[in-house]
């Protein structure tokens, strides 16, 4: 998927990944790529503006830990507000995909 199609969806994907527990940027990016079967092959650097934006909006909270190699690592966690936002986005996505699927099924029926 090209980057422009990911725009707007990335934040939903981040919230979804973090709904499973606290995580850090590299791992979030790897999860999105892996679980999408490589479909969302995003520029990894573009993940961070979205993470910081969600943090400023109060949907995520962050904390620091130190790795075994001595590096500082920033973890993100979903806040209750982030949880509510994710639920809303899931419902919206369901309505959106159902609508799109309905149209696509009708087209298949006509074409079939």
């Amino acid at each position: 998927m090209v980057a422009k199609n990911l725009w707007g969806t990335l934040e939903t994907l981040i919230l979804e990944v973090l709904s499973r527990g606290a995580n850090y940027g590299y791992q979030i990016a790897q999860t999105i790529v892996a679980e999408s079967g490589g479909y969302f092959d995003l520029k990894e650097g573009s993940l961070y503006p979205a993470l910081h934006r969600l943090e400023r909006q109060g949907l995520l909270t962050a904390f620091w830990e130190e790795t075994r190699e001595g590096r500082r690592r920033k973890f993100y966690r979903l806040t209750p507000a982030g949880q509510g936002e994710l639920s809303e986005r899931r419902r919206e996505w369901s309505r959106f995909s159902a609508g799109v699927n309905g149209i696509l099924r009708g087209a298949d029926h006509v074409m079939g």
């Binding site: 940027g25 990894e44 620091w64 500082r72």
Partner: peptide, 14 residues
């Protein structure tokens, strides 16, 4: 420092 450390951690992992 926070920005640099966060991005450096990602780059090092990658």
């Amino acid at each position: 420092r926070d920005i640099a450390d966060e991005l450096a951690d990602h780059l090092e992992c990658a």
